[in-house]
Design a protein around this nucleic acid. Structure first.
Lengths: 194, 194
DNA sequence: TAAAGTCTGTACCTTTCGTTACAGAGATTC
DNA sequence: GAATCTCTGTAACGAAAGGTACAGACTTTA
């Protein structure tokens, strides 16, 4: 038999892309086998738990990526730089909003219940770490958690909006408006009048 | 045969709820038949195009609801009242973010391509009509479209976030912060400093 | 009341789903 | 170099998928 040795680590990103495109229910083992080039044998060798196992590995992988590229920087970098790093990462990772956040996508249907732990902790950690960063930035502010919610919601909703309208520029503008370092402009829903 | 005459109009809301919960791919005719109480015969009588036909009817129905309860008010009411009406509708309709926006959910996977027209025009109309309302409110502002994007993204992302964390209060706070009529507070991501 | 039209339940079709079984090829170990 | 382990391809499984066929029962029209 032709044997091209595959490693689990190489397969997970491919799986991630497939789940991103088709969603959990829309992804079939057939598609996975075809797009990854791995037969069913290999697939079930790496992921004995089947499809759910594959999706769980993808969620882990995504969480790790955000841990390194977003959450950790939010903790260790100076606040303004941290937030800019986060937004830069978001802009490239989600490809102008055309590439979906699987965790967010999973949250929208019953898939959420299956992976409630991973989905919940991903967003909980993001909120916690971003709120803490905002607090370091403006210790006087008592609404850091709400600000964090608003920023994350803008990112997630920006993906929905950008994909629905097919407009990547919408997403980029939305994200860049969240930056803290462009001359203290008002980033609110309504312009400040006074 | 037992004959309980059903009307298409009565069935569509039930379908909507099912698609909301399971997503397009996760919804099977079996589930639909079971939950709606209609046999396959009736289902395919009302929707000759099958599952896609059913989902299309749901999208139409949702669009109509928003047309009446959100878009039209945004056009005809005084701006501030219009926006408050929209936010009230959003709060009750999405049930604290636990109930999903099907249009938004469809936008996140390949289902979008199947219903690109309905998905695109739903959001395009929302953006257009909200931006126009904001312009009437503050004719000087040149960023009404961006503000509209931000508000709609907050709503859609708020649903994602609320469902992921299971916290309905997060969603309510997020929505209420979008209101224009509470003493000109700054609703931005960052507090205004000057 | 006869005819036509509308709705409904059931049985069945084909395809695809996720999963399993398993033999064999290649690498690794002793 | 035999034994073992890791990986791979193929075939097949039962279950569930979406969809069709169609006769029967009720309404409506005439």
């Amino acid at each position: 038999m032709a044997r091209i040795v595959a490693e689990k680590a190489d397969v997970v990103p491919v799986l991630a892309e497939i789940f991103r495109q088709h969603g959990y229910e829309g992804t079939s083992i057939g598609i996975i086998s075809e797009r990854s080039g791995l037969g069913r044998g290999s697939l079930y060798h790496f992921f004995p738990g089947g499809k759910a196992d594959m999706a769980a590995a993808v969620l882990d992988h995504v969480s790790d990526w955000f841990e390194v590229n977003v959450f950790r920087p939010l903790e260790v970098l100076p606040p303004e730089a941290a937030i800019n790093t986060m937004l830069d990462a978001v802009l490239t990772y989600f490809e102008g909003g055309q590439r979906v956040c699987i965790v967010g996508a999973f949250a929208l249907d019953q898939t959420r219940d299956r992976f409630a732990g991973a989905v919940g902790s991903y967003f909980a950690r993001w909120v916690a770490v971003l709120a803490a960063c905002l607090r370091r930035m403006e210790p006087s502010a008592g609404t850091c958690q709400e600000q964090a919610h608003r920023m994350i919601a803008t990112i997630q909703g920006g993906i929905v909006l950008a994909r629905a309208t097919g407009d990547a520029e919408t997403f980029r503008t939305l994200i860049n408006e969240l930056r803290p370092n462009e001359g203290r402009t008002n980033h609110g829903a309504f312009k400040a009048h006074d």
